[in-house]
Structures are given as C-alpha cells and as structure tokens.
C-alpha cells in the first residue's frame, strides 16, 4: 500500500517517466562512450586485452591513410555546407512567397530523394556515374562534346559524384527546414519594410537572414556532423569500403575498416575519439562565431 502510494505520488512520477531515458543514457550512451575512450588506449586481441597507453594515438598520427580519410571527410563536409545551406535557403524564400506556382508538387518532388535508402540512391548513382560510355553521365559528356570519363576512379570527378548524391538527397530536407523557419517570421515586418521602400534584396538581407538565424545554425550543425561522419554514401557508391587510392575513404569508413574488417578495435576506437574531438571543436567554434555563448537575445 505504501509502495503504491509512493509510486503514484507527484514527487516520484517524473522520475518514473524519465526512467527509460536514464537507463538508456547509462547503458547505450555513457557506458559505450567511456569504453570508446578506454578501448582507444588498448590493444584488443582475440583473447587478451593489453593496455598500451598512447601507442594507438602515436600510430594514428603517422598513419597516412588516416590523413587521407580526414582530408576527404573535411573536404566533403566543407562542400556540403557550401552547397546545402545557401541554395535550400533561397529555394525556401522563393517557396514562401506567392511567386512559385504548384508549390505542393515541387515540395513533394524535392523531398522524394530523402525517402530512398542509401542502398538504393547509392546504387542508382553508381550506375549513373558508370565508367562505360553508355552511363548517363558519360552520355551527357559526349553530348557536350567532351570525352567519356572514369568518374569513380579519380579524386575530383568522384568528389563531384559524391556531392551530387548528397545534394540530391538533402536539398529537399534542408529546404523544408528553412521553410519552417520562415513560417515563424512575422509577415507584417516585410509589409512595413516594403512601405518604407526597402527592396527585395534589402528585405532578404535585413529581415530574413537575421530572423532565420536559429534555423541556419541548426542546419549548419547537422550538416557539419553529417558531413564529418559520412560513410554509407561512399560505401554504396564504390560498392564496398575500398576505392582506388582511397579517394572515397572517410573517417568513419576507416573506423569501420579497422574495427570490423580488420578486427583491430583499439585502433578503430582511437579513430572514433579523434572524430569526436574534431566534431566538438568545430561545433564549439561555430557556436562561438554565431554568438550563442554571448547572451540569449531574442
């Protein structure tokens, strides 16, 4: 009776509601996160686990394949941010006004790629960028009077293929993020600015950009994270985790290669920890530049 009363009291209830989160946090987040750090200092064999201090980190510093992976991931992240923020923002602004007809249709079509799994989209793009003359991209090249290319065999052209895949999948999603951000802006601001004679560009620059900033920061953050931890796109585009001269290898791809394919968990966890540190640093710089730490204005 007493136990029941305790469980049903208003003081206990919130803890019972939050209990699944607390359990999940401990079991599936903080414990594996700590193990990632611990494992990164270990040499994990089939039978024995040996503590090796900073040996893995030292090896990682000199590992040129890892350097390639970091560069690839950085490059990919940078370009996806450059492509997947300004354009979706522009599209959202266009969609927000009365300018565009048949909005619903375009919205649904833009969103369509996000519904396909990475297996399907990766396979479609691999076939499109096939090195044969009959692959669509090469047909296009020939139509433009250019020679056919082995798209996925050299750095620059494969990067183009990867970025096109990424833009294809995420432009619609990011556009929707910006559209929902625009919805929250008070329309009367635009009207009064128009009465004061502000041009379309001025209204965009002085009203839209500042007021949509929370959305921009959010999209930027998820783009940075997704860009840095990209793996499956490259995995599917090259139909496996190996690409010529590692042109498609990413940080997570290397983690997978070391941890799962070569069964060197300690070293792979070290890769993971470095990824975490990079992600946190970038996120911190980005938030600092955006003035999130200064004060809560608004």
């Amino acid at each position: 009776m007493k136990a029941k009363k305790f469980l049903y009291s208003q003081k206990t209830a919130p803890y019972i509601f939050a209990l699944p989160f607390i359990l999940s946090f401990i079991i599936f987040w903080i414990y594996p996160l700590i193990s990632a750090f611990v494992m990164s200092f270990q040499d994990i064999g089939a039978i024995s686990v040996k503590f090796v201090g900073f040996k893995n980190y030292g090896k990682l510093l000199k590992d040129t394949v890892f350097h390639t992976a970091i560069l690839n991931s950085f490059e990919y992240m940078l370009f996806t941010c450059l492509l997947l923020i300004p354009f979706p923002m522009l599209y959202a602004v266009l969609m927000d006004g009365n300018l565009v007809k048949a909005k619903g249709l375009w919205k649904a079509l833009l969103y369509l790629p996000a519904l396909t799994s990475v297996v399907i989209s990766g396979t479609l793009f691999r076939l499109m960028f096939s090195e044969y003359r009959t692959g669509q991209m090469n047909v296009l090249m020939v139509m433009l009077g250019l020679p056919a290319i082995k798209w996925l065999k050299s750095k620059v052209t494969s990067e183009i293929a990867l970025l096109m895949l990424c833009c294809w999948r995420w432009t619609g999603v990011n556009t929707l993020y910006f559209m929902s951000g625009l919805k929250a802006i008070d329309k009367s601001l635009y009207e009064s600015a128009e009465i004061d004679g502000a041009s379309g560009w001025q209204r965009f620059k002085f009203i839209t950009i500042p007021l949509i900033k929370p959305t921009t920061i959010y999209v930027l953050t998820i783009s940075v994270y997704a860009g840095l931890s990209m793996f499956l796109e490259s995995f599917m585009l090259w139909a496996g985790n190996s690409s010529p001269k590692n042109i498609g290898l990413t940080i997570v791809g290397y983690l997978y290669k070391r941890g799962i394919e070569k069964d060197d968990m300690g070293y792979a966890c070290c890769v993971g920890v470095v990824l975490l540190i990079i992600a946190l640093i970038i996120n911190f710089i980005q938030l600092a530049l955006n003035g999130t730490f200064k004060k809560e204005d608004r």
């Binding site: 987040w29 983690l255 941890g259 993971g272 990824l275 975490l276 992600a279």
Partner: peptide, 15 residues
C-alpha cells in the same frame, strides 16, 4: 545529440 552515433559504433557492438 552532440555526439555522432558512429563513435559509439564499436563499443556498442562489443556491448
């Protein structure tokens, strides 16, 4: 939300 899931991949796999 601040930690990419991929970092937990291997320890979680072991767990």
């Amino acid at each position: 939300m601040m930690v990419p899931f991929e970092i937990l991949l291997l320890p979680l796999y072991k767990e």
